[in-house]
Design a protein around this nucleic acid. Structure first.
Lengths: 236, 236
DNA sequence: CGCTGCCTGTCATGATTTTGTCATATACTG
DNA sequence: CAGTATATGACAAAATCATGACAGGCAGCG
């Protein structure tokens, strides 16, 4: 299995090829994008684990893209490594403000690139993504792939697990069914809209099932009429 | 309300009909164009939200049109989906270079087409206009799609939500009923004028309903006799 | 292989909410 | 006080959602 999927955003074909080859050799999957726009599409479509972003994109939109991605909840936790020709401190400051995770200055050795990528992935992926999510006594642990309420294990299917995980890591925000579909099932999967409803129901059912004392956790999943669903701690 | 307006550029009547029917069924408005020229006119005239463009147009290529639209600032951010018979990678590369947003290769299922359209629209519309709006202790948060008064959630229907959002982002200004209709319901929707009154009432009711201390937020929505309504912080 | 049980996506149906319109009451203007 | 303009309550149609049932896919197992 590949280590991870890396999106490379680079307009210069020669450099692109070089990087792609390097990463390929290091057992990463790569996606290529030549412009900020293409990159944005690829991010949403394929959810790379990391983005290698050239600072100097035509139209100067590299930093713009980074900022946009970091501002959006759905893409904020994808680490970004900037490729830059300049060593100027100015750039670094600007970049860090945009939420970039690391820098590689050209020219760089393949070895350095791979090392930095691994480091960033270790840093972000290792700690963040597998951290257990908790809301009151509801607990979802990605590592053990288990959901518990008051330490009582909850029966839950794979899809409902992913759904709950998505909700718990994006609380207090509405999502349209289309959105949920993209995030939980993946893009280019075509589902009937009502199917989402059914899975919501199954999830609610699972959260209710445990004969727990008092609190009904299914209330955390609120339906927003005409829009979609929301996971919220506040009572509606 | 329709999801969005789609311009279909396709010279084959049979395919055109099929697509139009499909989109119609999915609650999109459609505009038809049989040639690149017609299409260009339609784009400027009616500002569609998305363009479905056939690769193979008689006498002039669809790709030419795509390139032209993407080059012009005024039309550059209208997403384009190409319809193509070939699966060849060549085309995709050429298309992406022209700034096309996605591809659908014939033959395609109606469901796939709709899904891709929605995906593209979602992607492009993702600009951050989602900052919460606040007036005193009245708060409207587009992200969570919630209205609160003193942190107490307010029961409010979808239309009243849109109405309030409109008012809160256009304070201290009178709007005629026609204006409000265009902004909240969308143009080319016919409503009885009195219907606006009813929704205003419902909104006021919602803002009053919470048994809150003192301030009555329904007073923010003021009637301007003979003209329309105004959202104003200043007491009238 | 064939059987069994679980997971999934889809459908049909009934419940609930939302919405546009009317008819009537009330408020404002000159 | 007459003449409009707006507010309000009621209502039926339409939109949207929850739910139960069901069939195909798939893995595990005898």
């Amino acid at each position: 299995m590949s280590e991870a999927t890396i999106l490379i955003v680079e307009d210069e074909p020669a450099i692109m090829d070089m990087i792609a080859l390097t990463l390929d050799h290091a057992n990463f999957d790569t996606i290529a994008a030549e412009s900020a726009h293409q990159a944005h599409v690829a991010v949403i479509d394929q959810k790379p684990d990391l983005i290698l972003l050239d600072w100097m994109l035509p139209g100067g939109s590299g930093i713009e893209l980074a900022r946009r991605l970091k501002r959006d909840d759905l893409t904020a936790d994808i680490p970004i490594i900037m490729l830059t020709a300049k060593t100027s401190e100015d750039n670094k400051v600007q970049g860090l403000n945009a939420g970039v995770d690391d820098y590689v200055t050209k020219p760089f050795s393949p070895r350095e690139l791979v090392a930095r990528i691994k480091a960033v992935i270790r840093r972000s992926g290792g700690s963040e993504l597998d951290k257990p999510l908790e809301v009151f006594d509801l607990r979802l642990d990605p590592a053990s792939h288990q959901v518990t309420i008051e330490d009582q294990s909850v029966e839950i299917g794979p899809t409902e697990f992913r759904l709950l995980k998505f909700f718990m890591s994006h609380q207090e925000k509405v999502f349209s069914r289309d959105n949920i579909q993209d995030q939980v099932w993946g893009a280019n999967v075509y589902l009937d809209e009502r199917t989402i409803d059914v899975h919501i129901r199954r999830l609610r059912q699972a959260l209710t099932s445990t004969e727990n004392s008092g609190t009904n956790y299914s209330k955390l999943i609120q339906t927003v009429r005409g829009v979609g669903y929301r996971f919220s701690v506040k009572p509606s």
